[in-house]
Design a binder for these strands. Structure first.
Lengths: 242, 242
DNA sequence: GTTTCGATCAAACGATCGTTTGAAGCCTAT
DNA sequence: ATAGGCTTCAAACGATCGTTTGATCGAAAC
C-alpha cells in the first residue's frame, strides 16, 4: 500500500535503472547511431551493470525500440489529438492546411522545448532512425507512423480536394522526409547555434522556417509539375544527345 | 608501351580488383549502412581476398570515401557545369529558379537512369550517408558539397533578390535535405515500384514529383512565414496553459 | 636466367561486440 | 527470523570485427 509498486534501487524513483539506461541510450544512439553504439558505453554512461540491458529490455534492438517508443508514441498520439480538436473547432467547415501543419509540428516543437534535457536529443535520434537501413528500425517506424500518417492524409485530402490522392501521398511523404531530415541535421544546427546564440531553441527556429516552406510546396498547383518536368526533360534530352 | 599501365589481374580491365571492390561495397554499404557492413562480406561479394581492401584503400573508412567520391565528385562537377551553361545562355538576364533546380536535379536523374547497374544504388547510399552520424562521413560530405552549395546559393540569390540571404540559406538546406532523404527512402521506393511497375525509374518518378514541390517552397513569399508562425505560437501557448 | 616489385593469398592478431551464466544482494511477506 | 521474489553483479562465453603479417605468385626490367 506504499506510494509505488515499481522497483527502486537507490531510494529515488526517477533514477531507476531502467530510466537511466533509456536516458543514456537516447543520447548515445543519437550521437553515434545504433550500430556504432555499444551496450558497454551505454551501461557505463548510465552507471549500471552491463547485464542490466539484457535483463530489463531483452536485447540491444529492443532497447532501441524502447528508446524510440518512449517519446514517439505520446508525440504521435498528441498529433492526432490536436488534429481532432482542430477539426471539432472548425466543424463543419474543413480544416485549413495551415492548421493541419500546426497539428503536425506543434508536438515536435513541444519536444524541442525540452521539458528538461533529452527532448532535443530525441528529435535528432528520430531523424536519424528514419534514414537508418536496419530492417527492424524501418519496420518499427512504419508501424508507429502508419496510423498517424493515414489520419493526416485524409485531413489534407479534405483541405485540398482538387489534389489527386496519389499526388497528395507523395507530398505528404516529402513533408515527413524534410521534417525528419531537418531534425537529424547536426552540422547545421550547430552552425545556427553559433549565429543565433540567444534565441530560444535551434530546433524551434528550424521548424518555424520549415513549416512555411513545406506549406507552400503542399499547396502548389499541379501546373508547375508539368512545367518543370518539361524543362527537366529538355535538359535530359540535351545531355543524352551530347 | 602497351595500351595501359594499370594492373590487370585476369586479363580484363573493367574487372580489376579495385573496381570490383568498389562495386560490391557500393551495394552493401547502401543495403546495410557503413557500420553494419563488414569487410569480409564486401570481399566475399567482390570475390577478392580479405586483405585486398586494406592493400588498395588503406582502411574501411577510406574505402567508403572512395565509394562516395567515385560518383559524387563527377555529379557535383556536372551540376555546376550545367549551372554555368544555363547562366551563359540566359545572360545577361538572371536565371529562373526553375532552371537552377533543373541544374541541381538533372545530374542526379542521369545517375538514376543508370548507365548500367550501380547508379540507383549510389543515390540511395548517398542519401543514407547524408544522415549518418559518423564524424568522418559528415566531414567528408561537407567538404565535397561546400563549393557546389555556395555556387547554387549565389545563383538562387540572383533569381530571388527579394529573399533575405539567411532565409535563402535555410530554404536551400531544406531542398538538399528533402532531396537526400527522398533518395535514401527504401520502403517508399519499393511501394512505388509495386504501384507503377512499368514506368521508367522509381527514382526518376520521385525526383520529378519532388522538384515542383520544392520549387514552390523556394518561391514562397515571406508573408506566409509570420502567418503560420503566429498560428503555431497560438497553439503552443494554448498547450502551455493547459 | 636472374632480379625486382606490385598484387594476391591464407592465416592469424588483438580488440570489441552482444549475450549468458550463476552467485550475491536486498526488499517484502509470511 | 526465514523464505522467495526481483534485481544487481563480476566474469566469462563464442563470435565477429578491422587490420597486419609473411609467404607466394606473375609479369616486366635487366
Amino acid at each position: 500500500m506504499s506510494s509505488s509498486v515499481v522497483s527502486l534501487n537507490d531510494g529515488r524513483g526517477p533514477s531507476a535503472t531502467k530510466d537511466r539506461i533509456l536516458d543514456a541510450a537516447e543520447g548515445l544512439f543519437m550521437e553515434h547511431g545504433f550500430e556504432a553504439t555499444s551496450l558497454r558505453s551505454i551501461t557505463a554512461a548510465a552507471a549500471v551493470n552491463l547485464a542490466a540491458v539484457n535483463y530489463h529490455f531483452g536485447s540491444k534492438e529492443e532497447l532501441f525500440q524502447a528508446v524510440l517508443t518512449r517519446r514517439l508514441d505520446p508525440m504521435n498520439q498528441r498529433r492526432v489529438a490536436l488534429l481532432d480538436r482542430f477539426e471539432r473547432e472548425a466543424s463543419p467547415e474543413p480544416l485549413s492546411c495551415e492548421r493541419i501543419i500546426v497539428a503536425l509540428f506543434v508536438p515536435a516543437l513541444e519536444l524541442a522545448r525540452d521539458p528538461e534535457r533529452g527532448g532535443k536529443d530525441f528529435l535528432r535520434l528520430l531523424g536519424r532512425a528514419y534514414a537508418d537501413p536496419a530492417p527492424f528500425i524501418r519496420r518499427f517506424l512504419s508501424e508507429q507512423y502508419a496510423q498517424m500518417i493515414a489520419r493526416f492524409k485524409t485531413a489534407f485530402g479534405r483541405a485540398l480536394p482538387h489534389l489527386p490522392k496519389k499526388e497528395l501521398s507523395w507530398r505528404l511523404h516529402f513533408i515527413m522526409g524534410a521534417l525528419s531530415y531537418t531534425l537529424a541535421g547536426t552540422d547545421v544546427l550547430k552552425l545556427i547555434a553559433e549565429l543565433n546564440p540567444k534565441e530560444t531553441s535551434n530546433d524551434e527556429i528550424l521548424l518555424r522556417r520549415l513549416a512555411p516552406f513545406l506549406l507552400a510546396g503542399l499547396k502548389a498547383p499541379l501546373l508547375d509539375l508539368s512545367e518543370v518536368t518539361r524543362e527537366i526533360d529538355g535538359a535530359l534530352d540535351a545531355s543524352a544527345r551530347r
